[in-house]
Amino acid sequence: MARLDKSRTSSHQLRPFFTSQNLLNRADGSAQFDFGGTSVLCSVVGPAEVKIRDEKLDKATLEVLARPLVGVPGVKDKTIEQNIRETLEPLVLSGLHPRTLLQIVVQTMQDDGCVQSTAFNATMLALIDAGVPLNSILGSVTCMIDRKTNQVLLDPTREELAQAKSTHVFVFDNKAPPAQSKGDEDDVVMEDGDRVEGHVLFCESTGVFTEAEYFECYQVCYKGVQTVHGFLRTAVQKKFEKEHQQLQD
């Protein structure tokens, strides 16, 4: 199917990824993540000293600050802040660093749709770069349903989002789905028997959509996220290979 985004041929195709880690000098960890023309830079400071007011006695305080492309942070940025914080809270093993602060700053650098997903992925890489203990890693993609064709488009651009009937942001972790549990249907079962499942960490849908459309989006995004996870793994692996090359020769 033809897309508004001429660089892609398929509706389930993602834009090219790009990442760069450890690019800020003074932060404890930082990363940039790009989905095509969308780019987000994230920095992590922590575990650092925390203000008495925010101190938690048994775990680290997570603080997320989202900065928009231009101007001062508004309601939209506060939503992203809250979404990221609430998704990360169960992921970060904050009990290992009680009475400390983990500050995450998310700066949008370029906006061509799917900023929230890009921010999730950038945050993940920055946390890995900072060496914050995590119990799993997350990956995120966005998809939308076209108003005219009712087609699910993965990773839409801003131009495509203008034609959207509904948009869906999904975040999945990297835990392997319980593949052995064939037969016992206690989770989501697809009607066509094509069962794809993962652990959804976060999902935000806006617009009008049917239940069947929602599950189609879920499946498309789950498959898309596998590519993101693979890419994150390669990015981290490349960094460690570079670091350890002195030991190799």
Partner: peptide, 21 residues
């Protein structure tokens, strides 16, 4: 073990693992 899913996808010399592996 049934869940012997080998997570190590790295090169034979360097075994890079990620959180959750």
């Amino acid at each position: 073990q049934a869940d012997a899913a080998d997570e190590s996808t790295s090169a034979p010399t360097l075994r890079v693992i990620l959180p959750g592996d």
